[in-house]
């Protein structure tokens, strides 16, 4: 069975390292905050100017002056700090954030990512994604393996305008965990009930499969 959005987020949460700063993108990445494993301490940064982001507020406690990058109402945790956009991107560009989790429309086998524009159809803009992918040491993409038309989002090379060059390190989809290596995509894990053959046939690019591929354990 392919994972749902929460399943993808839960698997990515296993990548969180103790005592690190993490930036979560809009969409599936935001859900990662709900699944931080016990004993792991992370501080979430939001590009619009907060470090130490807490959970969503209770009803009636929403503050229009406290939102995340997705414009959702949030809270802050003890020790949180607020700052302007230039300082926020100094943290991001200056490589002070250890992990960035983003959504994507396409990822290429060399680590290129496309997630900001479909020419002639959809132009929402890159927001902070280009700054994030240009500098983050560790970038994990959270996305479905195929798009709504059933086409692979893991490609030999991106067809859409790219957001960044050779930057993605790992991809977690509803079907698999895939690492980007110098030789291309390498299959690390498969979702419960999903076979290696299914993953290969859902992927346009080649995938390196070596030995037994374990089932995601979470």
């Amino acid at each position: 069975m392919a994972l749902d959005k929460n399943g993808i987020a839960k698997r990515i949460a296993l990548e969180l390292q103790n005592n690190t700063y993490v930036n979560l993108g809009i969409g599936i990445p935001t859900l990662v905050a709900n699944h931080v494993p016990k004993g792991i301490n992370v501080e979430f940064q939001s590009e619009n100017g907060v470090l130490g982001m807490g959970p969503f507020p209770f009803k009636g406690e929403e503050d229009p002056d406290l939102i995340n990058a997705g414009k959702q109402t949030i809270t802050t945790l003890p020790g949180a700090v607020l700052f302007d956009s230039a300082l926020s991107f100094s943290m991001i560009r200056g490589n002070h954030i250890q992990l960035s989790v983003l959504g994507a429309m396409e990822v290429a086998e060399n680590g290129d990512i496309a997630n900001w524009k479909i020419p002639g159809k959809m132009v929402k803009g890159m927001g902070g994604a280009m700054d994030l992918v240009a500098s983050s040491e560790n970038i994990i993409v959270a996305m479905t393996h195929t798009n709504r038309a059933g086409k692979s989002k893991l490609l030999k090379s991106c067809t859409l305008p790219i957001t960044g060059v050779s930057c993605v390190k790992k991809i977690v989809t509803d079907l698999a965990v895939i690492q980007i290596t110098e030789q291309g995509f390498k299959l690390l894990e498969r979702a419960p009930g999903v076979s290696v053959e299914e993953i290969i046939s859902a992927t346009e690019a080649d995938i390196i499969v070596s030995g037994e591929i374990p089932i995601m354990d979470f």
Partner: peptide, 18 residues
Amino acid sequence: MLSGELEVELIPQGTLAE
């Protein structure tokens, strides 16, 4: 924007701030 009435320059958020 798609009809061409509006000119748009999209730039990365950190670049805009800086």
